[in-house]
Amino acid sequence: MSGALKPILIAAGLVVLLMIAGETVSPGFASPEQILRLAIVAALLGIVAAGQNLVILGGREGIDLSVGGVISLSALVAGNVMSGSDAGLFPAILACVAVGAAIGLLNGLGVTLLRIPPLVMTLGMLGVVQGLLVVARNGIPSGRAAPVLSDFVSRPQWLGLPGILWLWLLIGLAMAGLLNRTVFGQRIFAIGANEGAARLAGVPTQLTRMMLYVLSGVFSAIAGLCILGYSGSSFANVGGQYMLSSIIAVVLGGTPLSGGRGGYTGTMIGALLLVVLQGLLTTLSIDESGRQIIFGSALIVLLLFYGRSRGLQS
């Protein structure tokens, strides 16, 4: 247990450290409003990372590079279905979940039945979806979020927290339950740890792996919906930035890219850490290029540190 807990504690400690550093450099960085804002951004990333986490846990080089495309497409579909009216919210949810599930299913079929490496399959899918977006949008932004959705994402609602934070918390509980309390969760770990042995132990390896990609598509679609609410309207490639950061959040949270062990609680902290780090760099008013260099270097140092600590444990 301590082995699984350690990366989570490190990441959580770093989040606190960064907050203190931010508050010292620029008073107000750790103000309640600012924390809330960072938490919302982290929740958006965290929801995407939930799907990414599942796919990575399933092993066999599992990765979903199409999440950004699914987010953008979902935001576009949702924005046009609801087009600014609350009445359209429910159909919009159904529509974008269907879109996400369909893309995830195609990814899953490609990876399992056609045995296409996940990197290639999902990257190809990303290209296809981006092409579709260009065709559908014809270059013009379209669609608007329903007011109730915007409130859900950005206005404090219950106990001073916006709905999306409650949703993220709910997803966190659901993921923990799924991974630790269900047979499906057992199967995910089993195929990630040793697919050959899992198959001989009665695990439906293909079906399980396919489900992971479907779930990743669904989580990205939900994230796309929330991102639409956050930004008000869908703009071109709104999901683009989530591809790499979702993967990094998973790894920072203690799930190795080889899969088979880890969990979502760490990923949630990983998402927070990423967002706080980005926020701090923005606050320091360094120009964009310097920010990227520091951000990249910080990630490398962090991951190096992780690799070492795991190496020492085993």
Binding site: A190, N194, A198, L200
Partner: peptide
């Protein structure tokens, strides 16, 4: 390669056949 679900616990290495045969969905540890 064909026996141990490497990296997972002893518990998780004992239960998979039972989970499959009993058609359960919830893991009652």
């Amino acid at each position: 390669t064909e026996g141990a679900i490497t990296g997972r616990s002893i518990f998780e290495n004992v239960v998979p056949i039972h989970l499959f045969k009993s058609r359960q969905h919830i893991l009652r540890r």
